[in-house]
């Protein structure tokens, strides 16, 4: 069971309290009606599914109930960092070689 640092509660809590909510930084258009079929396909269906670093959303559903973002390595399952929803993709990842 993973330990996940909730950026709102500011502490590590067991995975049981959280639920994964899919890839992060997938931007919903401010003009949904004007989206082309291709753009909507990209927005709704296409996910990066990387081997390695993934940016994803989690919800502290049995805790503070907040959605937040996390950087996780899909190979080791290790969390690199977590940050609040709405914050930009971190430029530097602690402990991750470029």
């Amino acid at each position: 069971m993973l330990l996940i640092h909730c950026p709102y509660c500011e502490e590590e809590r067991p995975e049981l309290e959280f639920r994964n909510a899919g890839e992060a930084h997938v931007v919903r258009s401010a003009n949904m009606a004007g989206e082309s079929d291709e753009d909507f396909e990209k927005f709704f269906f296409i996910r990066s599914n990387p081997k390695g670093i993934i940016y994803e959303r989690w919800r502290h559903i049995h805790g503070c109930a907040r959605f937040f973002n996390a950087v996780r390595d899909t190979v080791t399952d290790k969390f690199v960092m977590t940050y609040k929803a709405g914050e930009p993709k971190p430029k530097k990842l602690p402990g991750v070689a470029k």
């Binding site: 959303r57 919800r59 559903i61 109930a65 959605f67 929803a85 709405g86």
Partner: peptide
């Protein structure tokens, strides 16, 4: 409830 919270917190904060 989850869908509403999701949109409220992340798309329409």
């Amino acid at each position: 409830m989850n869908q509403m919270e999701d949109y409220l917190q992340t798309e329409f904060p």
